[in-house]
Design a protein around this nucleic acid. Structure first.
Lengths: 203, 203
DNA sequence: AGCATAGTGGTACGGTCGTATTACGAAGGA
DNA sequence: TCCTTCGTAATACGACCGTACCACTATGCT
């Protein structure tokens, strides 16, 4: 046999090429030849490791979400999240905004996949439903935590508030993506709404 | 010459066919032949009235936004909007949610166009930027109106609040679209947030 | 040493897509 | 009346896409 190669690494390499070229030209415009060229391999190689385009797209989605949840987790663990629930919630929401190239690509492709899944049942059966649920649970927990510590308005339902904030962040993210709003402006809107929720009780 | 036909009406008829088939199978999957078949005309006719596919898509987007703003306007004027700023704001936000087939199609295609416009400069130069601005202005006006009447928290910035609410509605709409949230649940979240804003001052 | 086989490359094949070409009927103005 | 021009139709063309097929290389095992 030829040099035994790490299949999983090669697949990741090709999947990242898919993400790059799709982030540049749009998911609808990416073909297998583009992915092959971007990864620096032959078309046959892409076929060899993924077989069909659908499987390539599915793996690309998986790769995308994995990388981004890792990034969000890292930013939450390290740095600016040590100063209480408010800071953690703010970091959680602001990190999901498309500010730099990587998060911009993530937003663009994640939304593309989501829209595609509406009319493509093979994509609809994919895993990326549990991810928002995890964020929802985390944010709800942070809000409850703040309420119990007297740092947030106890009169609001934590889960409802969390759902709304996440939806707002997603909507603002799309606005940034299409160039309708600047990242700083969106962050400001988000912080304003967080200010209204995280209001220390003054009895 | 043959029977003089109303060009604008034919174009609308074809554009509506585009919207229907794109709403069913996704914007990425629609071809000129599909549009022709859906409209009950020949492929040549579609070419005759639109020339190129890009122009067809552009006109389809225009047609879509026109129809929907008309729908929202109608729902605001008639019916449940006569009872003050809160009811009007609620109607404005809830109407934009994908609850029935028409609004579902609108959301799907509008988001598809938006995502496409990120990587397609011909679509990025299109009009659909002023539409959200109009909604933003309207909602901001409603909030200011409520604040001056003592029906809303005077401590919030009306425009920031309006931006956040619209982004939230958009995000919730996408959640509904991908089947992650039920329409009633999303409406409940929106109403909850409206309750927090429209709080009568009790001096 | 030699062979079976994982890895890689080049290329051909249907199919479909957007667009262009050609043709023809039908109506209204001269 | 006729002829110009608008509307409609059928079909052809070239490009590209995903997939399949065939060929070759180089390695690890026996």
């Amino acid at each position: 046999m030829p040099k035994r190669v790490d299949h999983e690494e090669r697949r990741s390499q090709i999947a990242e090429a898919l993400v790059r070229v799709a982030g540049r030209r749009g998911l609808h415009a990416v073909g297998m030849r583009d992915v092959a060229a971007e990864a620096g391999v032959s078309l046959r190689l892409v076929q060899y490791y993924f077989g069909t385009k659908e499987k390539l797209l599915l793996h690309g989605l998986q790769h995308l979400t994995d990388r981004f949840t890792a990034r969000v987790g890292a930013r939450l663990r390290a740095g600016d999240a040590g100063t209480g629930p408010r800071a953690t919630a703010e970091a959680l929401l602001l990190t999901s905004l498309p500010t730099d190239e990587e998060s911009r690509t993530f937003h663009l492709l994640y939304t593309s996949y989501a829209i595609l899944s509406v009319t493509d049942e093979a994509l609809a059966a994919q895993p990326f439903i549990d991810n928002p649920d995890a964020a929802e649970d985390a944010l709800t927990g942070l809000l409850r935590q703040a309420q119990e510590a007297g740092l947030a308005d106890p009169g609001v339902d934590a889960r409802t508030e969390a759902i709304g904030l996440l939806a707002m962040a997603a909507g603002l993210g799309t606005s940034i993506l299409v160039g309708q709003r600047r990242p700083e402006s969106a962050a400001e809107v988000l912080r304003h709404h967080l200010d209204r929720v995280f209001t220390p009780v003054t009895p």
